[in-house]
């Protein structure tokens, strides 16, 4: 006589998280690779200009962690599309779990990676000043540099990365559930943009998530991200995959 297993949702979420961590190392690997590229670009500096009056030549090189931040944001848009795709679902269906535990595990995994990615980008920002010191050139230190400045940067970057990752995860889920629904939503957004004008919409989003102290930005982004992840759970709860 076979014995039934009584699974718990918590255990299924944990297994999903760990399976992502070990079995989808490409997601973490792509984050690391992009950040290494970003740090390398930061090291060589960029966006500089030069001027000369015949006697003195001035070359200004801007050392900043902007490439790291930009590439981290890019990663936050792209990698959730892979995690929410049909191939990932097909793999997940080999193991015990429901659609809800799967999406919850994925959301926690993305959140963890976003935290790690934002931390690395913030640390890169802190150390980018050192890059300028190494070549032994005259240095103009940027404004800020206090602990609170970096804490704010970390909070804002985490918030925006999480928001992008959640929106991308929702879009990926919707697209793999129903391409018609995904295109309909996109068309609706475009119509909405035309009706309300781009600037007003962007301003409205900025007022909600981009205004005020860093902690408020993080909180608002977190709320919006939770909304997108919940929407992905709802949209993905009827998701099928044919063998």
């Amino acid at each position: 006589m076979s014995t039934l297993t009584q699974p718990t949702a918590g255990n299924a979420v944990r297994n999903q998280f760990l399976r992502n961590l070990y079995g989808r190392s490409g997601i973490l690997g792509s984050l690391l690779a992009l950040q290494v590229i970003g740090i390398t670009l930061s090291f060589f500096g960029g966006s500089g200009f030069g001027t000369s009056d015949g006697q003195i030549t001035i070359n200004v090189v801007d050392y900043s962690a902007n490439p790291v931040i930009g590439l981290t944001l890019l990663w936050a848009i792209i990698s959730p599309l892979y995690l929410s795709g049909r191939d990932s679902l097909k793999t997940d269906l080999t193991f015990p779990g429901s659609r809800t535990t799967r999406h919850t595990g994925n959301a926690l995994y993305l959140t963890a990676l976003v935290l790690a990615g934002s931390l690395v980008a913030t640390l890169a920002n802190m150390t980018s000043i050192l890059f300028a010191v190494i070549p032994d050139h005259p240095l103009i230190l940027p404004a800020g540099g206090s602990t609170s400045h970096y804490v704010s940067l970390f909070a804002v970057l985490t918030g925006y990365c999480l928001l992008l990752a959640a929106a991308s995860y929702f879009a990926g889920t919707l697209f793999s559930v129903s391409r018609i629904a995904a295109f309909a939503l996109l068309a609706l957004v475009l119509v909405f943009l035309r009706v309300t004008a781009v600037n007003e919409l962007v301003a409205a989003i900025a007022r909600f998530s981009g205004d005020g102290p860093a902690s408020m930005i993080l909180l608002r982004c977190f709320l919006l991200s939770a909304f997108f992840f919940l929407a992905a759970i709802v949209a993905g709860s009827r998701q099928e995959v044919r063998a």
Binding site: A9, T91, T94, P96
Partner: peptide
Amino acid sequence: NSLLVSANTILVHEGMAFPPAL
């Protein structure tokens, strides 16, 4: 979408997929 059924069932088929990095 049943966790209970999923934990007590396995379907082996040609298209069965496993985490690609493992």
